[in-house]
Nucleic acid binder design. Structure first.
Lengths: 212, 212
DNA sequence: TTTACAATCCCCTATAAGGGGGGGATGGAC
DNA sequence: GTCCATCCCCCCCTTATAGGGGATTGTAAA
């Protein structure tokens, strides 16, 4: 039973080459190839492939935009992005939409085939440069607590604040008076350059300043 | 100029084998190997390696816990986790702390060497199973807005709320009355099962329900 | 057509939170 | 010793927010 593929790629030469190469293998069979994703939803539904190779920059409609539609109709389908773009916006939009892999065209086509193999085995192939960006998104800013000169006590208060707790509750949790807690928060807001608790929570969580 | 390595691994046989194998290569030189991370900070500072192979489960102290210390003293150092654990908690704690790669021991040792190569070239090696979990952490984000049955307008309001904006400001931004905005927020709070804006921000950002 | 609901606006009240003071105790740095 | 930072506590006052009520449109489904 060959793995059935559909390819969306607007470069005719590249697409046809992929079709020929993949069809010559024992493992893969290209059941459809298209230069755009304007009718991707129906095409995928009709052809019912196991895997999709998806370019991003195509005439008419962005490749990323069809991912949700496809994943919704058949969640177990594997979508491998195959593109020249390595800007974070496109990467994260693709991955969030549900892409299972992200391979850059600038790497050798060999890598694409290895990636397909990896997907077949249940992995998630990412080009090294992509993996690096993905990992970087996890790295929390090193010791931002120091950066803002927060005292240990202020950090304790802040940690509870970003859980959404009320001032009253935070005070109780730390066994200090309500007003003391407010005083700490006042100092925290000053140091973080924000004006209220909501801003503080937003800033801390968005920048991943504290995270344990 | 060989790439200088330090290895933290409590399994004597495994560690010594890695030392021998890596030292036999042209590219690597193991400048230190230790069965625990109790003095990792100083050891790394003294030996000043380019790369670190780091186990997680070691006697005395968790491997993950020394990552921040190491990264702080030398941010450009590459840390590759080499462990048997594939539970999400350890993975994400490692990556958040600053790990540059995460390789499972159950894969062949060959893979570790490939991973080191990849790091040398500026990549970020992840075992397929790990990469899949990392990608999965991006995927869930998509449908969460739907999960809570938020209307498009409510999502708009929520997006502004999680930036830390005041109700007044949000209302102005959306060209609606203050009370309308409050009404939306009331519905949002109900749907998210929270009692106030701070809780809502905390919940949304912590669960990555919305993020564009 | 009736029902349902999203989106809009308004009123009122109680509580939570922010902003401004001041003061006292500790412990380390100079 | 003095100085300073930290941490803790208390007061007052204003604003922001939450929670409750109700009402009107338009739209879309039943």
């Amino acid at each position: 039973m060959k793995t059935q593929l559909v390819i969306f790629e607007d470069n005719e030469n590249l697409r046809k080459s992929l079709v020929v190469l993949l069809n010559s293998s024992e493992e893969y069979q290209v059941v459809g190839d298209f230069p755009n994703v304007l009718k991707a939803g129906n095409q995928v539904k009709d052809l019912d492939p196991d895997m999709i190779i998806l370019d991003i920059d195509m005439p008419g409609k962005d490749g990323i935009s069809v991912i949700p539609e496809i994943k919704e109709s058949k969640p177990e389908i594997s979508i491998v992005m195959y593109t020249q773009f390595e800007d974070e916006d496109k990467i994260f939009r693709s991955l969030c939409a549900g892409a299972d892999g992200y391979i850059l065209k600038k790497t050798s086509p060999m890598v694409l085939f290895q990636a397909l193999e990896e997907v077949r085995k249940g992995g998630a192939p990412l080009s090294p440069a992509i993996a690096k960006k993905v990992l970087a998104s996890f790295h929390q800013k090193a010791n931002n607590a120091l950066k803002y000169n927060l005292t240990p006590r202020e950090i304790e208060v802040l940690k509870l604040l970003i859980k959404g707790y009320s001032i009253k509750y935070i005070a109780a949790e730390l066994f200090i008076a309500y007003d003391t807690c407010k005083a700490h928060l006042k100092n925290i807001y000053t140091k973080l350059h924000v004006n209220c608790g909501k801003e503080a929570i937003a800033k801390v969580l968005a920048e991943r300043i504290i995270f344990d």
